[in-house]
Design a protein around this nucleic acid. Structure first.
Length: 494
RNA sequence: GGCCCGAUAGCUCAGUGGUAGAGCCGCGGACUUUUAAUCCGUGGGUCCUGGGUUCGAUCCCCAGUCGGGCCA
């Protein structure tokens, strides 16, 4: 690889070389910054009254990226941007130390990172500004930044050069601040509710806990195939067997599947488990958590997403999957337990599926087709067919339905939770049913995890659990319709 | 996997079967309180890649690459 510089880069490179030739290091080791932009502005607001229109008697040093440059020959205005905001600086030929003004106009470009020492004052137009006595180059930018008012807008370039996207598009920085505040609020909620945050394996000898294709890798010394986790569920429940009553983990999961605006191969999941609890307890906690997190991040429980106003205020609606599908499509899947029969019903309702589509998958498709797009306000869809949920416990007295829920809002699935299956023999049979489904052509099934069944044989208390798509919730709270907009470096073909 | 859309200067975008356009940007100049500073002059291109049609293709056709959207 060679570094080919375009015309503008060559000119900046030339300035860099000239600075060095003049004895000025364009990438010095350290900065002498005394104030962030925000601190400088706050300082001036504080002392302004006593100044009676004159300059701050003390000199301070600010630093940042040159965002604007208004060169008027004997005076120059510029805005420096740091991680806390912006501050305007003002250079006046008479006010400068000897030689500095020449250096500035000749060698400073937009995008350079510089620091400036001087005194604060308020300009005629009312902006708090640093009048510069001396400035220093901190890092010469060889590549010019994007246009100043459109920023970088080409989405491909924005994702591939996220650093440029971030420094030139303030609203993008805000999206990721929102995401981080959201995760902090989730942690605060769980920590306060006495959950133990834990770490379980990313590299797993057997994948499980979800229906998805895994990434496969190989450990040379162990001489064994390992999988990147598609979920951490089975490990967290082993910890419940181990005696922890409330555990959670926020981690990356990996699924070797399609990429679209709701899916990325690498995404962030929250899972938590509560011993001596069932899915009712969990739902109550989930709605409380999301309400609190939204309030913490947005200052209100209402958000705008995809043209809808969604209010996360508790309590959320509960709606059984069977009722929801029946209401929207007229199909009662419990009356059509036969695969071909349900397939025909689906076709009648306008949903064409391959003839070998497994029965549980047809139910899932009916939900996605008829129910999900209609769910605007936060809703728990509850009580799923057992075939869709091999790790969930049956409802008392029911052979067909498990205690499972999915929270949805604005047509998006936010997560998945259930009363955990703790009968080792039932669990073993469910795993076997998965194998049978795989043999029948379903390519999204779980392998048998005997070690997990053995863990259950030591006894797991009644437990409720939940998994939340962190990226999905971040999308909603940041008002972004694509998951790529809430992942700093989304997967891209190279 | 199928269909549709896009790719032109560092950035944001126009445009055309016959020497490639604007604004920002850069460079040179004027300007000592500007806010997308202003004014004068000027520079910058593998028009995504490879084939084809044509006297001539950035443009039309075919294939591909990357990105986006819709569908499965």
């Amino acid at each position: 690889m060679t570094l080919d510089l375009n015309e503008q880069q060559q000119i900046r490179r030339g300035k860099l070389d000239e600075l060095r030739a003049g004895g000025i290091e364009p990438f010095p080791t350290r900065s002498e910054r005394s104030h962030t932009s925000a601190e400088a502005l706050a300082r001036f607001e504080e002392i302004e009254e006593g100044l009676e229109g004159s300059h701050d008697p003390e000199q301070i040093t600010v630093a940042g990226r040159v965002q604007t440059l208004r060169d008027m020959g004997r005076s120059i205005f510029s805005h420096l941007e740091d991680g806390h905001g912006q501050i305007q600086i003002y250079l006046r030929k008479n006010g400068m130390l000897e030689g500095d003004i020449t250096w500035f106009s000749d060698y400073v470009d937009r995008g350079d990172i510089i620091e400036a020492r001087g005194s604060l004052f308020r300009t005629r137009t009312g902006e708090v500004t640093l009048e510069v006595a001396h400035w220093t180059m901190l890092s010469k930018a060889v590549s010019p930044p994007p246009e100043k008012w459109h920023g970088l807008s080409d989405v491909e370039e924005r994702y591939r050069r996220r650093y440029v996207d971030l420094f030139s598009n303030p609203e993008v920085r805000e999206v990721f601040r929102t995401r981080t505040r959201m995760i902090s609020a989730v942690r605060a909620f769980l920590d306060r509710n006495e959950f133990l945050e834990v770490e379980t394996p990313t590299l797993q000898p057997l994948y499980g806990g979800a229906l998805a294709r895994p990434f496969t890798t190989f450990h040379n010394e162990l001489e064994q195939t390992l999988y990147l986790r598609i979920a951490d569920e089975l490990y967290l429940k082993r910890l419940i067997v181990g005696g922890f009553e409330r555990v959670y983990e926020i981690c990356k999961d990996f699924r070797n599947e399609g990429v679209d605006r709701n899916h990325q191969p690498e995404f962030t999941m929250l899972e938590f488990y509560i011993a001596y609890a069932d899915y009712e307890t969990v739902m109550a906690l989930v709605e409380e958590m999301v309400e609190e997190v939204t309030l913490a991040v947005k200052g209100t429980t209402e958000i705008e997403f995809d043209g809808q106003t969604v209010d996360f205020k508790t309590p959320w609606r509960r709606l059984s999957l069977a009722d929801a599908i029946f209401e929207e499509s007229g199909i009662d899947f419990n009356q059509h337990r036969d695969q071909q029969e349900l397939l025909a019903k689906a076709a009648e309702a306008g949903v064409k599926l391959p003839p070998d589509t497994p029965w549980p998958k047809i139910v899932d498709e009916l939900m996605k087709e008829f129910v999900r797009p209609k769910v605007s306000q936060p809703t728990f869809l509850v009580d799923y067919p057992v075939e869709l949920s091999p790790l969930a416990k049956r409802q008392a007295g029911s052979e067909l339905t498990v205690e499972r829920f999915q929270p949805m809002a604005a047509g998006i699935e936010l997560g998945n939770g259930y009363t955990e299956l703790n009968d080792p023999f039932d669990q073993y049979e469910r795993f076997q049913a998965q194998v049978a489904q795989r043999d029948a052509g379903d390519d999204e099934t779980m392998p048998i995890d005997i070690d997990y069944v053995e863990a259950l044989m030591y006894g797991m208390p009644p437990t409720g659990g939940f998994g939340l798509g962190i990226d999905r919730l971040a999308m909603m709270l940041a008002g972004q319709r694509s998951i790529r907009e809430v992942i700093l470096f989304p997967a891209m073909r190279s």
